[in-house]
Amino acid sequence: MSSDNQITDMHLDVLKEIGNIGAAHAATSLSQLLDRKIEMLVPNVRLVSFDEMFELAGGPEKIVAGIFLRIEGDLSGSMFFVLPIESANEFIQRMIGDPSFDFGANPIPEMGVSAMQELGNILSGSYLSSLSDFTKLNIYPTVPSLSVDMVGAIVSFGLIEVSHYSDEVIVIDTRINEDNEDGSSSVDGHFFLLPDPPSYITIFRSLGVM
């Protein structure tokens, strides 16, 4: 991929800033929604192999609740909000006020699925609208879709587009944590933004670094 040759640390820093702004807004929305303090870590921007991408999300066999959506418009790409199943259970139990809710149930109660999709809607909406403000690019998210399954099965779907071009992917990875009252932190959620390779240049141009 020829565009890779021109990507420098400065470019990765720009992408990091995108992750910072996007996820900060999403974390604020999540805090408000759950009435809890949600913290966001400094984003990690890396060029990784597909297998390394799965490791970032906990390994290919880890069971997660994954919300996936495609981004269309001036730039295209895939976005994931991935939560370990225990954290997803906790979030949704709180949102719908039902402490017995479990994503491990078969079938998953419809109420929880809707709540999780709504959570995905709100979070991706706030992430992407801040990204759109920052870059002045028109970005349209598709409706988010939920799957509770293995990381490999879920995340690989977002790599299909990239795999036409490369065996590596630039991932903007922002981790979120929840601060507990005793000072410990739980929840290890991730926002992954995976721009399609032709969009790298669009992003850099819009921010005047290419």
């Binding site: 996936f68 495609r70 598709t142 879709s145 799957s147 099965a153 779907f157 299909i160 587009e161």
Partner: peptide, 15 residues
């Protein structure tokens, strides 16, 4: 060859 999500661009959805 599963279909993990119910939407996407037409090419991708049927991958």
């Amino acid at each position: 060859g599963a279909q993990m999500f119910q939407f996407g661009s037409n090419d991708t959805i049927r991958i």
